[in-house]
Amino acid sequence: MIRLENIHKRFGELEVLKGIDCEVQQGEVVCLIGASGSGKSTLLRCVNGLETYEEGRLTIDGNLVDARSKDVRSLRTSVTMVFQRFNLFPHRTALENVTEGPIHVKGMARSEAIEMGHELLARMGLDAKAHTYPDSLSGGQQQRVAIARALAMQPRAILFDEPTSALDPELVGEVLEAMRGLADEGMTMLVVTHEMGFAREVSDRVLFMDQGRIVENGSAEQVLTNPQHERTQDFLRRVLER
């Protein structure tokens, strides 16, 4: 469904993606792991058209993703994103954050959008907070609202950019639980994460990135317990020792 072929991305002199090839199938949960600076987030942002890439071909359901073209907007409604720092709209309530896209981007009727918004918030265990502004929500709650906002676009896939990295440790569980729920329902997910437990239990496949390349690509079992590449072994040792 999401296909990357030989993607190269440079920031000036620095080449952050050095030829990425990978594919995410419909209904698959793929975790992207690796040290910071390895290019994971950049890769994710390319898929959402938030970053341009210089070389290669990136397609979603066969449609080319090009951050500079107008079509990128409709692609973004089919593959949406959840951010590390939530990025909720602070001047809108939880419910309004969720209904913003359906009403104003997709042109859904207000009553219908509100009904769906309540349903999605309830699914995230947050319907009681529908009329609360983001600054009165905990980080975990904000991130769950952000997930509901992404779901409200009825996307074909959701990209998660380190969704639990900005959270206090005791709030990580509730967000991972919500993501696990989505995975169980068959949502296609590409997740940049440092949560090895989540990667192991939930993902169908794990990709390990190092210095702009995917050096390992296999089932969670394969990559996390029996890594072939020295870099992966190093990384996992450091992460698991923490």
Binding site: N48, T80, F83, E100, G101, H104, A150
Partner: peptide, 20 residues
């Protein structure tokens, strides 16, 4: 991040300016 969030739900520039 507000700009990225607006883009990620498919907003174009005019809508993003007006709503976000």
């Amino acid at each position: 991040g507000q700009i990225e969030a607006a883009h990620s739900i498919g907003m174009g520039w005019p809508l993003m300016m007006r709503r976000v």
